[in-house]
Amino acid sequence: MSEAVLDRPVRKRRRGHPVMPSRMVRRFQDGHFVERSETIAGECATAIVYNGVSFSVMMTTPQHLDEFAIGFTLAEQIVQHVGEITGIEIEDVVLGVEIRLSIPQGRMDKLLERRRMVIAGTSCGMCGILSIERALRTLPVLPPSPPIRARVVQEVLAALPARQSINHETGAAHAAAFVANDGEIVLVREDVGRHNALDKLTGAMARAALEPANGFLLLTSRCSTEMVQKAAIAGFPILVAISAPTTLAVELADAAGLTLIGFARPSGFNIYTHDYRITG
């Protein structure tokens, strides 16, 4: 996935937006009200800025924001590998957080042209992408890869909740996990946004020079078109989601050579495409 590893320090100037703040609440239970402290999933507006130019604003869980920025940058194909990101600064601003990335001027020129095309187009209403052609970009075709055992998928599904610390405290966070073919959960990232969780994971993997082809992707969310696109671009051969895929997600996965699994539970799952990668 990456040709170089980002080894420059991340500069952070932050007062800090809490990841899991606590608040006194009133709860109705067993026929009466009680006052108690609840942990709540943090959320803040996060701006991604390239070479001083704002590109996008999203709502995120304020944790692992450098990895989120790297993953987002790679997923959007603004750079081709993590080594092209020459600096990251994270700073609190009045209403949220700015993540400021430095990229080569050639990449920035292409980004500015892309931004002009977005401003000049007619919106289709899909996450700021302004045409069907841009939304349904051509995906790479994944090469064949060795199969994994069905039992490995089931065991990982049972083990993942213990690794979801934010969701355990709040019940409001999605997770994206990279799992080795032998069933080891290598990395987990969480966020209130399912897309953000996956971008954080791919960012962390790029930084650690982990190859997606050596395992599979596990998502605690529904599997939409965008999730399949991000998985295929990153190079994951298998995507496992605990909820349902959409029809277009299945079509894109099939065309990209991606094994797509949905309705995944420890008790079983559905395989929608390229089932040769899963053995009994």
Rank of each mutant, 00 (worst) to 15 (best):
M58H: 04
S22P: 02
V57F: 05
I85E: 04
G52I: 01
F33C: 03
A120F: 01
M58A: 15
S54P: 07
S102I: 02
T61G: 02
M58C: 14
S102Q: 10
A41D: 01
I119Y: 09
L74W: 08
M117R: 12
I40D: 01
S131M: 10
I40K: 14
G83V: 06
Q80S: 11
H81L: 10
S102Y: 00
G31L: 06
R27V: 15
S56E: 14
L112H: 04
P9D: 06
M20Q: 03
I119C: 05
S54A: 15
H32Q: 09
T39C: 04
R26E: 13
G125T: 10
T122N: 07
H64Q: 12
E84Y: 12
N51E: 14
R36M: 13
P9W: 07
R114W: 12
S54H: 03
M59S: 14
L6E: 06
E89R: 13
V53K: 10
D92K: 08
E113R: 06
F28T: 06
I90Y: 12
G52S: 14
R114H: 01
I119P: 02
R13W: 12
L65I: 10
S22H: 00
Q80M: 01
I40V: 03
G106I: 03
M24C: 10
R13T: 15
G71T: 15
T73Q: 07
F72K: 15
A69G: 14
D92W: 03
Q105K: 10
V10T: 13
A45T: 04
I40R: 08
I48G: 04
P21Y: 05
M59F: 01
G106T: 11
G31Q: 04
E84V: 10
E35R: 02
R115M: 00
R14A: 12
F28N: 04
R8S: 03
C44D: 05
S123P: 07
T39I: 04
T46G: 01
I40C: 08
V93M: 14
R100I: 04
E38Y: 01
V118D: 09
R23T: 02
R116H: 02
V97Y: 02
I88P: 07
T60P: 05
L6S: 11
R27A: 08
D109A: 03
F68Y: 09
